[in-house]
């Protein structure tokens, strides 16, 4: 009898989780989570996913225009192999800090890459798993209010874990995805995945907006 009860409870538990996942995906894809429902008074903990090369340049251009007192503290997550991006982040932070004489309110985390350019989709499953394992404590410690990402592989585990936080009612993290300026007709692999998880899905070309109803084109960003 007892084992029967345990089985039923187990099934119930799984059904509830599946329902919660579907509910969250539904909320995201129908655009119901596009805007905050209440007014925010405190600053928001922000994770900024930094990719490499062009992705970094684009992301830092977007971030540089933000009011850093609102988006504080900032956690930059980047591939452990990427030295150039780290320098660029430090330059930006310094440039923003100097005129205000503020204190350092950012931190850089470096994680292993989930997928390098041209790696096969099959092997990238394993590297992604490793990358997720490595990222988990970081995300659970930060529990961010906001994640900004624009395409590099490193942002998939970050967004996945943030989704988990949301799933278990720990933190309602907003994921904002900005598709790269290079994408005018087709979505990147990251974009195709985040269609189901990003609360806000921005594209930089009207021609790409026409391909996905829930994407948004707010004007020329670059």
């Amino acid at each position: 009898m007892e084992s029967q009860l345990r089985l039923e409870l187990g099934i119930l538990f799984i059904v509830l989780i599946v329902a919660r996942v579907l509910f969250l995906i539904h909320k995201v894809t129908t655009g119901h989570s596009k805007y905050a429902t209440s007014k925010r008074k405190s600053s928001c903990k922000t994770i900024i996913c930094i990719g490499s090369g062009g992705h970094t340049t684009e992301m830092l251009k977007l971030v540089s225009n933000l009011d850093f007192t609102k988006y504080s503290p900032r956690y930059y997550i980047m591939a452990s192999s990427d030295v150039t991006s780290m320098q660029k982040v430090e330059e930006l932070e310094k440039a923003k800090r100097l005129p205000t004489k503020g204190t350092i309110d950012y931190r850089i985390y470096r994680i292993p890459r989930s997928r390098v350019v041209k790696q096969s989709y099959f092997t990238s499953v394993f590297t992604t798993l490793y990358s997720i394992l490595y990222t988990t404590p970081v995300i659970f410690m930060i529990r961010p209010d906001l994640i900004l990402c624009n395409g590099p592989g490193t942002c998939i585990p970050v967004c996945g874990l943030a989704f988990l936080l949301k799933l278990i009612f720990v933190k309602d993290t907003r994921i904002v995805f900005i598709e790269s300026f290079c994408r005018t007709q087709t979505f990147s692999l990251t974009g195709k995945i985040l269609i189901y998880f990003a609360d806000n899905f921005l594209v930089q070309w009207p021609s790409l907006k026409r391909k996905l109803k829930r994407s948004e084109y707010i004007g020329q960003l670059m």
Binding site: N65, L66, V176, I218
Partner: peptide
């Protein structure tokens, strides 16, 4: 100002 304005609205600022 496009992106900051958009993000401020999303975050409830």
């Amino acid at each position: 100002s496009l992106f900051p304005r958009y993000l401020d609205k999303c975050m409830g600022f």
